[in-house]
Design a protein around this nucleic acid. Structure first.
Lengths: 339, 339
DNA sequence: GTGAAAGCGCTAACAA
DNA sequence: TTGTTAGCGCTTTCAC
């Protein structure tokens, strides 16, 4: 059986309060007492029982991160950044996968497992604007992603519209006029796909380039295979295009694969732009021009904002905040060497 | 403030024991009593406090997974599989990133944070055979990976030697004789790199193909960029080769990129084989022939074995087990269309 | 079939 | 500066 505060106190010949004081770095302790206690701790190999501490303090030292799935590179990299940011603040991260399914996202929000952690970071894909009120929970929640705006919780997200607009403007500036889109979601207004499509259209409009529905390919999932399939469909449809803006890098990589299979040269015949700035986009052939949505900033900010709420610094005085990370366009070979 | 057992008991006009019985599905309760209690639970929106339950029961319902980093695709996919396997058994997963650093791996083993979970799955990269005894901890530990064998804990791993041998045999069977290796670790015997190199040499020996040190490229990290760099070095060295066996897919993808930049055709001039069977290897151009090391089986088995220990089913009667997942070669375009 | 009460290991008022 | 004590919310003997 592991040693307890009592065992240590007994061995050191002091009260448990004194031991507790030593452990918690309470300042006013006689050096002599402290040493006695520390010796006893060392001898017994005492380690504080975090569960008991948690029960008492109401804090667990962990936060939950709910996301669709780790095998999607974007979320793996996001989780990496969140864990690093949390660790820097002494917190650990418990991960839940929802598969992007609304029912499972709701389950995560309501699960008693939330009590194992002090707060929840949820990257939702299935929830929609109508579910906004369901984010109101008896514990701090920070929303990631772009499915819900103006909800009851803090929200950290990226500038989807502006970033997509910049991506399209970038292609237009290089003389491309027939820009195919991969990854649209039929009828979506809010959501990554909807917002990115809006940004794209804004750029077209501003440049007086006509919008052509035939250039838009919808695909619910943003896996590599969907990118390849969409591109094959596009090619089979016979529609003419000189650029592709894929709504994430994974789709873009799949699409590049299909383009190359068809003998189409990138960027000479078709330029390709992705979104996410995944590690692997730097190593594809050709390397992929992409939108860096500020993933690390999002993770860092989300953790900070969540901890503010957990520690009560921001609560409840501060109303729900909507925070946008800065984006940038990363130029690589898939759109032609810059300069 | 959240409702407690007391509140429910008070409202239902029973004792807390009765409420506890209802919650824990204790069989001998009068239907009438149960209904009364359930009504009270519903009315108060009562949710059991897991922390208190944990303190009392000594179980948390979570396990820890320590791995190098989630942005390495193999570990992201492994984490995905572990989370799915754990969830199937009603457990959640807390993830710690060690960066593959020995000191941080030791820290994970000794951290008081381990008390937030019932056991630890550790995929070590920094620990070595000499650290075996440090795996002995006052909580269940299951080791993943190939840095330590015959340690004091259960160990779930892949058949590195046999799988690597099969990969090389596969290339030899297709007439390749000059097989370059990417991802070796200087002087390593145990460890993924050491074991895979051994398998490779065994295959060469069995086929009486001479081993040439000039074909071996060492790189400590197995990132894409290292694969590309190693390949560029290899090409610059002027050594002749007709195949590459990269010790993981990420290296292989980086190497393919460098080969293609140099105008070398895959698989005509050089065949490429990877290791891990990552999702993205299916969508590269050309798609990558690779070793499937049985990742899902590893995750599933590791979680099962860990829970056996946690639940005391296997403890301490059963001695530490060493379990190997089955592997297979997945044939794709990078070694020529099969048949 | 249900209740009373002890106690998991810790923190924090309050006392001394 | 240190000790005493009352819980945190729950499970679990042990009565009744």
């Amino acid at each position: 059986m592991a040693a307890t505060l009592h065992d240590v106190a007994h061995l050191a010949g002091v009260s448990i309060k004194t031991v507790s004081n030593v452990i918690n770095d309470y300042p006013h302790i006689r050096v002599q007492t402290r040493e006695k206690v520390e010796a006893a701790i060392a001898e017994l190999g005492y380690r504080p029982n975090l569960t008991a501490r948690n029960l008492r303090s109401g804090r667990t030292g962990a936060i939950s991160l709910a996301l669709p799935e780790l095998s999607l590179s974007y979320f793996a990299e996001l989780a990496d950044s969140v864990i690093v940011a949390a660790e820097r603040r002494g917190m650990t991260v418990l991960i839940e996968q929802t598969g992007g399914d609304r029912a499972r996202e709701l389950e995560v929000l309501r699960s008693p497992r939330r009590q194992l952690t002090d707060g929840l970071l949820i990257s939702a894909l299935g929830l929609g604007q109508d579910d906004a009120l369901l984010l109101e929970q008896p514990y701090p929640v920070v929303l990631l992603g772009e499915r819900i705006f103006d909800g009851p919780t803090d929200h950290v997200t990226m500038r989807n519209v502006e970033a997509a607009r910049a991506a399209t403007e970038y292609l237009l500036a290089r003389g491309r006029r027939r820009i195919a889109i991969i990854g649209a979601h039929e009828g979506e207004v809010i959501g990554s796909a909807g917002l990115r499509l809006r940004g794209h259209r804004e750029a077209l409009e501003a440049a007086a380039v006509p919008f052509d529905q035939d250039l838009i390919r919808c695909t619910a999932l943003w896996h590599r295979s969907n990118g390849a399939t969409s591109m094959r469909e596009l090619l089979a449809s016979g529609v003419r295009f000189d650029a592709v803006f894929a709504f994430n890098d994974t789709l873009a990589l799949g699409a590049m694969r299909a383009l190359q299979e068809a003998g189409i040269r990138i960027p000479y015949d078709v330029a390709v732009v992705g979104f996410d700035n995944l590690d692997e986009s730097l190593y594809s052939l050709p390397s992929l021009t992409t939108v860096d949505p500020g993933r690390e900033e999002i993770a860092e900010t989300a953790v900070r904002v969540l901890l503010d709420r957990i520690e009560g610094k921001a609560d409840p005085v501060v109303p729900p905040r909507e925070i946008f990370a800065e984006f940038s366009i990363v130029e690589r070979e898939s759109t032609g060497v810059p300069g």
